[in-house]
Design a protein around this nucleic acid. Structure first.
Lengths: 356, 356
DNA sequence: AGCCTCGGGTTTTACGTATAACTAGAAGCG
DNA sequence: CGCTTCTAGTTATACGTAAAACCCGAGGCT
C-alpha cells in the first residue's frame, strides 16, 4: 500500500550507497499518468491545482490516488526550468552563530514557507572581506535576495544580477534596494539615554562593534541627540569586535585611561555588555551600584549573566518576517508595505542611580 | 566592459520591480554560442571544464570571453534536470538559535562549498511534533540528507525517499543511516566525573534536557559508569527544557527537596548550567565554594557568566565538517571514513573542592 | 438541421543544459 | 596509397514539467 512498484525499480537492497544519479529512478508525472490511464498533461493539471473546470472530479481522484501510491514527487528542477523561476530566495547574513541573525533567519523561513518559497543561506565572510560571489554558493538560481549588514561590494554583485533585493538592518537609502526593513533602533537608543539620564548619569562610554555599519552610526547619532539638551552630558566611544572577551578588553582599557570616568556604559550589543560587566568587576567596581551597563538585542545571554542585563529588546524574528513579506510583495510586483518594528527597553539589573 | 548588451535587454530603469519570471531574460549557453560563433555544445564543453582534447585553446578562450561579456550564468535548474542530480543536501537541525547547531551548520557549509554542494536547511519543529515533510521545505530536490537529533517519524519520511542519510549526534545503530557522526560525549562525561570525583564530590545532580535523545542516554550511562567504582557516589537526574530559566527552576526544585543534597551539578548543556548557577546563588549558595557546576558544549555563554563555566568543549564545527565529508563519501559511492571527534574538559571557575 | 458552446480531456512544445553519437579534415603509417 | 587515428568540432536528444493549442462528443439555440 505504501508504494507500488509498477516501474520495476528495486529499492530494498544496498540503497543508501546510491551510485550514480539516483538509485531506483523516482516516479515521474508520466508514470503517474500511465498508472491512472490519463495523459501526462492531465497529471500536471491535477497536481497543479489548476483543474477548476478542466478535469472531472473522478479522474482527478484517480490521478491523486495513483500519485500517492507511486510516491510521486514533482521534480522541482524540471518545474523551475519550465517556469523560469525558482521560488527560492537568498538570505545573506554575516553568521548564524550570532543569535540575532539566527532569529532573523527563523522569521524569514516562517514567512517563506507560508508562501511556498525556499530559503538558501549565504554566510558573508565576517569582517572586511568582500563576499566574493553570493550566487556561487546557492545551488539554485534565485528569485530574490534578502541581505543584512552587507559589504557594499557584495551588494554590487547582487545588483549586477538584477534581482529584487530587500535590505535588513541597513541604511534605508541604499541604492538598488527595493525595500529596507529596520527595527527602530534609534528609538531604542533614545529610551536607553532617557533611562540613564533619569538615573542621574552624565558621563557615558559608548561601546560599539568595530565594524562600521549603518546601525552603528544610527545609534551613535541617536545617543548624541538624546544627550544634547542635558548640561554636562558627555559621551566617548570605544569599539571592539563582537565577543565577550573583546568587550572586556575594550572596557578595561577605556576605564584605565585618565580623565572622563564614565558612570554608565552603553553597549551596542549584549555580548559587549557582558564583557563590560566582567571588566567592571575585575576592576573592583560593582554593577550597577558603581557603574551602570546597558546592552542591545536581548540575547539569551542577557538573562544568563548576573545581574541580568538591562537591554533593548529587538524583534529579531519580526525583522525576518517583515523582510520576507516585503520581498514577496516585490516579487508579486506590488509595492512593499512599510511595517513598524518597535523596540523596547527592558530594565533589569545592570542599571541604577549614578553615584552622586 | 563589465557586461555587454547584445541581447538587447534594458536593465537600468524600474528594474527591481521585476514583474513576471525575470526581467530582461538572462543569457543562455545558446546566446554565448551565437556570440562566439560556435555551437551550444561547445559552450557546454568549455564551461564544464571537460574540453581537455575536445576544443582548441583559441575557441575555448573565445567562448569564455563571450560568456564573460554576456554575463552568462548557467541555469542550474536545467543542469540539475539534465544530470538528474542536484548537488544540494538537506541539513536537518532542531533550531539555529541553538549555538551548537549554528556552529555545526557552519562546518557543514564549509565542507559543502569545497565540494561545490549547496546546503538547504530544514528546521525540525522543536519538541515532539513529527517533522511533517522535510522535503516540502526544500525548494530543490536533494542528493542527500544530514540530520541531527531527529524525531524517528521524520526519519521514516526520509528513509522513504531513499536518500543517502548521515546522522549527526545520534544513535550509531540507526537503521537506514549510511553513517553516524558523533563527538565523544561519553568520554567527555567521564572526564567531568573524574574531575569532580577528584575534587571529593560524591553526591551529584544530573541536569539534562527534557527531550529524550540518544545523547542523554549516552551521558547518563557514562556518568553512572564513571561513578560505579566509588564508594558512596550517587546521582539523581532532573530534566528541563534547554533554557536558562528552566534550568534555574529545575535546580531550585531539586535543591529544595529533602535528602540527597548534591555537592555538584552536572549539566548536559551550558544553558542549563547557567541556570543552575543562578539558582544556587538565589538559594544563598556560593559557586563553586558551596556547589560545583559543570556544563557541556562550551557556548559563548560559558565565558560570559561569572564565574566562567567549567564545561566540556564540543567540536561543533568539526562535527558538521565530518558529517558532510561522510555524506560526500556516500554520494561518491565510497565507504565513509570514520573520524574521531575528541572532546575536552575545560576547567574554569565553577568547580572546586567539595565541602567536607 | 446547422452552428456554437463547453466540459473534459489529449497532443505538442519549450524551458537550458550535458553528452552520446556522428562528421570532416589532417596526420600518421606500414 | 589506403587505412586508421586524432583533432576539433557539430547535430541530435533527453531530462520532467507546465501550459498553449487543439480535439471531440453532447447539449443548447435559432
Amino acid at each position: 500500500m505504501t508504494s507500488g512498484d509498477e516501474t520495476g525499480q528495486r529499492r530494498d537492497e544496498r540503497w543508501p550507497t546510491a551510485r550514480g544519479p539516483r538509485a531506483g529512478a523516482r516516479a515521474t508525472s508520466r508514470d503517474v499518468a500511465r498508472a491512472a490511464g490519463v495523459s501526462q498533461a492531465t497529471v500536471s493539471l491535477v497536481m497543479g491545482e489548476k483543474w477548476r473546470g478542466r478535469v472531472s472530479e473522478r479522474t482527478a481522484e484517480a490521478v491523486r490516488s495513483a500519485a500517492r501510491s507511486l510516491g510521486y514527487r514533482p521534480n522541482l528542477a524540471a518545474r523551475d526550468l519550465r517556469l523560469g523561476r525558482t521560488r527560492t530566495v537568498l538570505l545573506v547574513v554575516p553568521a548564524l552563530t550570532n543569535e540575532f541573525f539566527a532569529r532573523v533567519h527563523t522569521g524569514v523561513v516562517r514567512v517563506a514557507r507560508e508562501h511556498g518559497l525556499g530559503v538558501v543561506l549565504y554566510l558573508s565572510p565576517e569582517g572586511t572581506g568582500p563576499a566574493r560571489d553570493p550566487f556561487a554558493s546557492a545551488s539554485a538560481t534565485l528569485d530574490g535576495v534578502l541581505a543584512s549588514s552587507m559589504a557594499a561590494e557584495a551588494l554590487g554583485a547582487i545588483r549586477g544580477g538584477g534581482l529584487p533585493l530587500v535590505m535588513l538592518d541597513s541604511d534605508p537609502g541604499h541604492e538598488g534596494a527595493s525595500a529596507t526593513v529596520n527595527p527602530e533602533i534609534a528609538d531604542g537608543m533614545r529610551q536607553v539615554a532617557e533611562h540613564l539620564l533619569g538615573l542621574g548619569h552624565r558621563r557615558f562610554l559608548h561601546l560599539a562593534s568595530d565594524i562600521d555599519t549603518w546601525t552603528f552610526r544610527v545609534r551613535a547619532r541617536a545617543l548624541a541627540e538624546a544627550l544634547r539638551g542635558t548640561d554636562g552630558a558627555m559621551v566617548r566611544t570605544e569599539r571592539a569586535p563582537l565577543t565577550v572577551a573583546d568587550g572586556l578588553r575594550a572596557t578595561e582599557k577605556a576605564l584605565a585611561e585618565p580623565g572622563h570616568r564614565p558612570t554608565a556604559i552603553v553597549c551596542d550589543d549584549d555580548v559587549l555588555a557582558a564583557g563590560a560587566c566582567k571588566a567592571a568587576r575585575r576592576l573592583g567596581l560593582h554593577v550597577p551600584a558603581d557603574l551602570s551597563v546597558t546592552g542591545f538585542t536581548d540575547l539569551a545571554l542577557a538573562t544568563a549573566v548576573e545581574p541580568e542585563l538591562t537591554t533593548v529588546q529587538l524583534p529579531a524574528e519580526a525583522v525576518g518576517e517583515a523582510g520576507m513579506r516585503a520581498l514577496v510583495a516585490v516579487l508579486d510586483g506590488r509595492p512593499p508595505a512599510p511595517e513598524a518594528l518597535p523596540v523596547r527597553l527592558v530594565t533589569r539589573g545592570t542599571t541604577a542611580y549614578a553615584r552622586p
